[in-house]
Design a protein around this nucleic acid. Structure first.
Lengths: 182, 182
DNA sequence: TCCATTTCATAACGCTTATTGTATAATGTG
DNA sequence: CACATTATACAATAAGCGTTATGAAATGGA
């Protein structure tokens, strides 16, 4: 039929994802993306329409891999509050000290309410549902954990004191377990 | 001596602050700032060195006015946990539905750990100190509130469901008051 | 009134940006 | 082996960016 693609889409999206996560959408130039993915801009525009199209694909890739895998690794179904504690603590031990932050959090802030990418809303929903389930159905507390989670990622991205965050997370889940159901 | 300035610096910084808050630093063009402040780029570069200089001035203005005033209005010294609840709930009733978010939160995310503007660190410290004081010295809980605060601002900026946030805040401070000291 | 000094308005600069042509290479099918 | 089709590479384009130069306007002091 036609000439086949010569790049591995998984590696390509992973590379683009890292760039967007570290620099944000606007500050990531097409040349940055060429370097990180190894593809030239011509192919990029041919395959993903434009820079925004590549961003959408890379973000979906983020939800599919990074987010889903983090939940599966630390707080799978049935893991309860202890799983959630592991999930939160895992944020502190990311490579690079977590200085890239979370693509969902970063994008939620970069794009305002207006033209918000769909994967942000979706990521929020996935997290809230996960939290509510592991808490045993307490949806209001799930919203609190969603906000806490986003805030922790803001602080980590800003290079905030890790020890203080760890102590805070530990104590928060301790009292959460203690008062669970009272 | 010399020709006097013909602009009101307070109004100028307020205008620039709004632009940076709504669009972020990188996405705010010098021409946007000209429009919002009424000054021409020549004067801008003469008075503030460059775009980043204007940003620093506008951010300091933010900490001095918006942040400090919000604390003074809702959670002044001695206001206790009830004051903190008012402070948090006030975030939900911002003009424009709060779609501009908070300049501190937004900037913390936009600039990573590297070349983080000083006013971000300063704003975090002011909030943490305020929370710790109004809580009666519980510093670990103050860090939790700092993270919760940042997370709420992320969600508001993204246009998250206000009713869910309000219910969450109300319940969070209710249990905070109930278990205070036990 | 003239001068030194600083602000202001306008236009221009060089550079980077996202995007698009154009021509070439590589495939499966006839 | 052609052919249609798609991917790739490279060059070019127009627009926008932050920044700077130029010169006029406005002040207080000599």
């Amino acid at each position: 039929m036609a000439r086949p693609r010569s790049f591995d889409e998984d590696r390509l999206l992973t590379g683009a994802m890292h760039v967007f996560r570290r620099q944000g959408f606007a500050a990531s130039s097409v040349r940055d993306l060429e370097e990180a993915t190894g593809m030239t801009s011509g192919s990029l525009y041919n395959s993903y329409r434009d820079k925004r199209g590549l961003f959408e694909a890379a973000s979906a890739h983020y939800n599919r891999t990074v987010l889903a895998r983090r939940i599966a690794d630390h707080a799978p179904e049935g893991a309860g509050i202890a799983g959630l504690r592991r999930l939160f603590l895992s944020l502190l031990h990311e490579p690079d000290g977590g200085s890239s932050g979370c693509l969902i959090t970063n994008s939620a802030v970069e794009f305002g309410r207006k033209d918000q990418p769909g994967f942000v809303t979706e990521g929020f929903a996935v997290l809230r549902a996960c939290f509510a389930d592991r808490l045993g159905g307490n949806d209001t507390e799930a919203v609190a954990l969603l906000a806490l989670y986003q805030g922790i990622l803001v602080l980590i991205r800003a290079g905030y004191d890790k020890a203080a965050l760890e102590a805070m997370i530990t104590q928060h889940f301790e009292t959460l377990e203690k008062h669970h159901g009272c």
